[in-house]
Amino acid sequence: MSAKNTPLTSVTVIGLGAMGRALAGALLDAGHPTTIWNRSQGKGDELVARGAVRAATAEEALRASELTVVCVVDYDAVETILHPLSDALQGRVLVNVTSDTPERSRQTAAWAAERSIAYLDGAVMVPTPLIGSPDALLFYSGSQEAFERYESTLKVLGGKAAFVGTDPGLAALYDLSLLDFFYGSISGLVHAYALATADGVKAADIAPYLHTIVQILPPIAQYTAANIDAGDYPGAQANLGMMAAGVEHILHAARMRGLDVSQLESIKSVADRAIVQGHESHDWASTYEALRGRN
């Protein structure tokens, strides 16, 4: 049989929340035979109308395909659904894109390995409208053999399918690290708007100028990573002492306007500890040493 005529991988999707439906939809769009199952009834009718097969039971769903993607609310739900049905998964590949910690990922991988289930842990890094697009980023870790065997199928879910290592906890670690940056950044954005609006300036008046800050972040991300990995924090262009003083100015202004300053106080506290450790003349990356509790 030619590669052109090779049947597409059959895939089961367990969990039909918004993300699960998006994943199943992307598989259907690409022509993959897709079986779906959800614990509660009433979800997935539009997928069935597009050609998906709704399994009557979770066991039927697992036995229907060589590859199963599970996307449910948490790892407790994963265990409730899958642990009693390990025989149905034996010899198959399980891709778990449920969000949790690296520790839970490793525990689930160990459970799978004991039962001869090839396991990939995954993390979806884009909202549902981007699922199936070339720019959609999903991290995977665990069984490299399974990733390489089904890479073309996984790229149907997101063109930027990144295998980050055989440690099954790494996908979750990458996920949490990126979200750590995101939530800190979006919280800073909202606080910036609160500072401006406290004096009657509209948030929309500030927004057009934020691209100046946003545009400098990619190179900052690169050299900060390099400095942290090297343990070297040159501060010739902007040192920590100067920047900590800038944070103090924002703190003062925010307090005067009655804003919540807990995030800013935490930022200033970490910077101050790094300065006490001798990093005043170094760049902001040196606060890493304070975060890690190092002297």
Results as ranks from 00 to 15, higher is better:
Ser143Glu: 03
Gln144Arg: 15
Gln144Glu: 15
Ala146Met: 04
Ala146His: 05
Phe147Gln: 02
Phe147Ile: 01
Glu148Phe: 00
Glu148Asn: 02
Glu148Ser: 05
Glu148Met: 01
Arg149Val: 00
Arg149Phe: 02
Arg149His: 05
Tyr150Glu: 02
Tyr150Met: 02
Tyr150Ala: 00
Glu151Leu: 07
Glu151Val: 05
Ser152His: 14
Ser152Gly: 03
Thr153Asn: 08
Thr153Tyr: 09
Leu154Met: 10
Leu154Ser: 12
Leu154Cys: 11
Lys155Ala: 04
Lys155Leu: 06
Val156Leu: 05
Val156Ile: 12
Val156Asn: 04
Val156Cys: 07
Val156Ala: 09
Leu157Gly: 11
Gly158Ser: 11
Gly159Tyr: 05
Lys160Glu: 08
Ala161Val: 11
Ala161Gly: 09
Ala162Ile: 11
Phe163His: 00
Phe163Asn: 00
Val164Lys: 03
Val164Trp: 04
Gly165Met: 02
Gly165Ala: 05
Gly165Asn: 08
Thr166Val: 13
Asp167Trp: 13
Asp167Gly: 08
Pro168Val: 01
Pro168Arg: 00
Pro168His: 02
Gly169Arg: 07
Gly169Pro: 10
Leu170Gln: 15
Leu170Ser: 14
Ala171Tyr: 04
Ala171Met: 02
Ala171Thr: 07
Ala172Trp: 04
Ala172Gly: 01
Ala172Gln: 14
Leu173Ala: 15
Leu173Tyr: 09
Leu176Gly: 07
Leu176Met: 15
Ser177Asn: 14
Ser177Arg: 14
Leu178Pro: 04
Leu178Met: 15
Leu178Phe: 13
Leu179Ser: 11
Leu179Arg: 09
Asp180Lys: 06
Asp180Tyr: 14
Asp180Trp: 13
Asp180Met: 12
Phe181Tyr: 15
Phe181Gln: 11
Phe182Lys: 06
Phe182Leu: 15
Phe182Cys: 06
Phe182Ser: 08
Gly184Phe: 05
Gly184Thr: 03
Gly184His: 05
Gly184Lys: 07
Ser185Leu: 14
Ser187Glu: 14
Gly188Tyr: 11
Leu189Ala: 11
Leu189Gly: 07
Leu189Ile: 09
Leu189Tyr: 15
Val190Asp: 03
Val190Thr: 05
Val190Lys: 07
Val190Tyr: 11
His191Pro: 03
His191Trp: 11
His191Asn: 12
